[in-house]
Design a protein around this nucleic acid. Structure first.
Lengths: 183, 183, 183, 183
DNA sequence: AATGAATGAGTCTTCATTCAT
DNA sequence: CATGAATGAAGACTCATTCAT
């Protein structure tokens, strides 16, 4: 029961923050979307909205981690893995309505307790890049190239997702692999 | 006087939105930061906050347009121009306190009247890419390559700026030219 | 208009705080008792409840100052003036419903910003005692005795009012002059 | 165990109410100060906060009763006993941090169920005065004077404690015996 | 043309209490 | 017997906006 409510709250919050950012979403909206009563939030997240946001971001982080692993796990090359990743994320972007942004930055930038939030954000980003770099090495890239490639993937994805959102077009994300490797 | 107040308002708003997003900044904060009286906002921007946000975004757009032109104007090659652009923006990022994001998306995503805002955002992004593509062609790139390169620069910059903010490190932006061209 | 609303707010707040203390009275209760709309409070008292409480206390202080002067003004002796004071306050106590306490302590103790509130409270109390001492000297008491008598009146009144409230009997306050001087 | 928890709760509550009044202290604060689990309150006090407040007041009442007896027990005269009482209470006031008020009035005024609370308060006050009057008679005062003297002590103490709190100075309480008898 | 007073829906949060275990 | 999860009314406060001057 407990975990269910808590997770539902975090998941709902993540989904909403991703659309309109930390300040753009009210607690009442989250609560009603999660179909939970008003008082229940502070039971699960004693520190309130910021607590919830941190958990929502962790939620989104774990999901992204899983997606990255899924993409590269059975890839025949790093480039193929990256392409799979872009395609998976394009699909996700489309499924969520083409009006979402990077959950991590939308939750953790612009929020209160700026330093804690920002550091957490940096940790998640770093973690993703490490993860991608690991796959790169496993798939034959040199120890020198791997982190560079990982960062390249990361920034391209971040920027590409933003452009996709502006244009409401998931194909922008799909096209990123061409942008990166076909040249 | 009138234009002065109006511009001051738009400029101040842009500066603040860039840090905490559309919903993260209240009208009263903007007014007090601009040292303007309470009632003056609706004199200059009859539709209120959304009007102001649109103008603030236009303000930021014009500034970015100018920076892009400055960077490529006297460049000896497209790559050199891009590098100059990254360095200029890194400096800007640092001057603003290392805690800002892309003004356009922070203002125009997540706001009300979603569609109008989003379309305006797409227009600005497209405009930047066209502008960069123009410089690319002028500097010898083919008509085929130019828009691709422009998009590459754009997404890299968007994502790189986000990473720079998370890490509070302007050198992330400076490093983007290496990431793009040194390989 | 403006001053009217502000004063009405302060006066209403003082009346309510005197019954149930700073924390015992909600802003909404004050607003509805004053028949003023929700948002109007923060227009007049930007810092909110604590601001309002400070003003309410000042209001009560001025009223008490006036009552003290009225009581001693035409008195033939200090003792007669004190008796008049007790009788006036007994009447006030009864008019207010026999369920009120010292407005100053009820507002300024137990509130937030403890130090500012407490100091203000001490100032008011001291001011009353100075005022009473002045009248004492004017009415023939020595410079040595006057402040002692003033403090005596003050503490007796404070304690007597508390007892009167517990017993819901204004005569307790009337009896204080006998308690003090008939011996 | 059970009684221990119950008493700890009442004692903690009394201590906190004395500082910020009935409405100024939340149940959660009491619970966490007493280091007891959330649900335990309604086990010991089925009617909740008002029940607890009544018990806390009784607690404080018993303590005051004991202090009064201690002060007068071995006194050589009523005046000496009163002086001892003032000194004991001054010490208590200082030990508690100079920011407390009369526990009985702070708990029992301003609370809900006003009538029950107020009557209980009156009973306690009356009881103290009877007790002091008894000592007065035992120490040689007449049956006529004794209750008057007791009331005098009571109101002086009530008012003096209030003044001591405002001035954060325990010596105000010590000085009360001079105020009463040295003249 | 320009402003500050006024407004009430909205914000996040804490409250005392009940309930299921 | 004891407890922590659950609850919704109420808490103080901020919001973007309108209005009268």
């Amino acid at each position: 029961m407990e975990q269910n409510s808590r997770d539902k709250l975090a998941w709902t919050a993540a989904r909403l923050f991703q659309r309109r950012g930390y300040h753009g979403v009210g607690l009442s909206e989250i609560l009603s979307a999660a179909k939970l009563p008003k008082g229940s939030l502070y039971h699960h997240f004693p520190k309130g909205k910021s607590d919830l946001a941190l958990e929502a971001a962790a939620f989104a982080h774990r999901e992204m981690t899983r997606i990255i692993d899924d993409a590269f796990q059975n890839a025949e090359s790093f480039e193929a893995g990256a392409k799979t990743l872009f395609f998976k994320l394009a699909k996700l972007f489309e499924m969520m309505g083409k009006d979402t942004g990077c959950p991590i930055s939308l939750i953790l930038f612009n929020g209160p307790e700026e330093d804690i939030f920002r550091k957490r954000c940096a940790e998640f980003f770093t973690s993703w890049m490490h993860q991608i770099a690991s796959h790169a090495k496993r798939l034959g890239k040199s120890s020198e190239d791997a982190p560079i490639l990982a960062q390249k993937i990361f920034v391209t994805l971040q920027g590409g997702w933003t452009l996709a959102r502006a244009n409401q077009d998931g194909n922008v994300i799909r096209g990123l692999s061409t942008l990166l490797f076909k040249e």
